[in-house]
Design a protein around this nucleic acid. Structure first.
Lengths: 246, 246
DNA sequence: TTCCATTTTTGATCTGGATCAAGTCTTCTC
DNA sequence: GAGAAGACTTGATCCAGATCAAAAATGGAA
């Protein structure tokens, strides 16, 4: 593990409150690994031997059933993923693959489980982290159940703008193909939907989103704190899609 | 609070490991409340002042957006609900209403939060509970994203049979209208789907489910441990729909 | 029991999205 | 900078599921 990575990890909510000694003990049994692009490093159903921390690159969490698959989240540095499986010592429910070359820290889940029985501050941090992750997935399920695909696209575009500080224009942080899968629709349907959204206040220019009429977009997306956050992306828990650059 | 209720609550995974003194302290600040049928006792967006424990009756957790609403889960005795909101001291993401006359124990969430900072066994229990709830919702999101409504119905019916011990026949534990909402479809569509499932090994007789050809039903439902459990309903966390009687 | 309200079913129709099939545009590689 | 692979778009068609409307069945309450 590189020296500059330790403080980055230490800085995560999950680890910042534990004692230095305990943190070091946890890191001592961990190690870093580099993965090439497109590698499936976790297959759903595998035993959860390691808590993963992305320190470089990005990772897609996705689920498979039968022949189908769907994107559940994208994780970017610096954040952890699949904490719940590690804690339950249960099989991963999701698969993970790198979207680009990525560097991951692997923390043995047995050490993790031992640690929150020893360090009360750490266990409080785990509680907060899990509660936060739970709420993220609930928000996600709400969107899937209550909004149609047009509304999901609109609220996604609006949310990204807000996360970037309310900017009127920004670049999509992921490929459209992936975004479509995350939003639970086909790439074709997303493409068409984006076109028709021009009447509703957003225009696309390649991967660039240009909000031309925020009021109109708002009317369609009907953003709701209890679905769209804040705190949907505010934590470092690795749920949801990353914030847009710029 | 009635004397027979305390041991029932104490028996929950969440509370069984804490010290007796701490449990009593928690219960001392709690109180019971009876609600008539159909009462919305929690509105999404309200501050999470109390952890709820159903000791009698049943409760529907549902979400609203715009004019639409969808059932997220049904909670039956004895189990807790909306733990995550209490821990984060954040607004409820879901609403709750009684499906029948219900008796609920209300535990002040501030006491709860104070407690897991004091009782390490309790905080471990909270961690396990939250991790388990998290995984339930992820399974839920997977079903919504990866299965169509026919497959969701089939796997639901099969799962219920399994939970009841692999029986070939059982009664639906909830109204079809509610089941439809839980499965993310209209009542009409559920009704029609149930009819067409007769070719796939299940027959309905009112609220009674009769599995006539388990192999065929299995082929359609393609049950998957990473979606359908075990442990989807195994905990007392209040996620999912209750197990079928008989 | 009778009446009223709700749930469930059935039918007809409509539509949001999926699917299939080309094409065009990017991006990376050699 | 040519070629190939993948991403994105566009068009045509199809189908799962929603919607609207109205019967039929259930289940309470008086």
């Amino acid at each position: 593990m590189r020296p500059e990575e330790l403080p980055e990890i230490r800085h995560l909510h999950l680890f910042r409150d534990m004692t230095q000694a305990n943190f070091e003990a946890l890191m001592a049994s961990s190690y870093a690994q580099n993965f090439p692009q497109g590698l499936e490093m976790i297959r759903q159903g595998d035993p959860a031997d390691f808590l993963h921390v992305v320190v470089e690159g990005s990772v897609e969490l996705f689920a498979r059933w039968g022949g189908r698959e769907g994107t559940m989240a994208v994780v970017r540095p610096v954040s952890t993923f699949i904490l719940a499986a590690c804690i339950r010592d249960a099989p991963y429910l999701m698969s993970a693959r790198t979207l680009e070359r990525a560097r991951i820290i692997l923390i043995p889940s047995s050490d993790l489980r031992a640690m929150f029985r020893r360090d009360p501050e750490f266990s409080v941090a785990v509680i907060n982290e899990l509660a936060s992750c739970y709420r993220s997935v609930v928000r996600n399920a709400k969107t899937l159940k209550l909004r149609n695909s047009r509304e999901r696209v609109a609220s996604y575009l609006l949310r990204q703008s807000l996360l970037a500080g309310g900017v009127p224009s920004y670049a999509l942080p992921v490929e459209k193909r992936l975004l479509a899968s995350y939003l639970g629709m086909t790439a074709e349907n997303l493409s068409r939907t984006l076109r028709t959204l021009e009447e509703s206040g957003v225009k696309m220019d390649g991967a660039r989103v240009i909000i031309t009429d925020r009021a109109k977009l708002n009317a369609l997306a009907q953003p709701d704190t209890l679905i769209d956050g804040p705190d949907m992306f505010a934590n470092e828990s690795g749920s949801g899609l990353p914030a847009a650059g710029q």
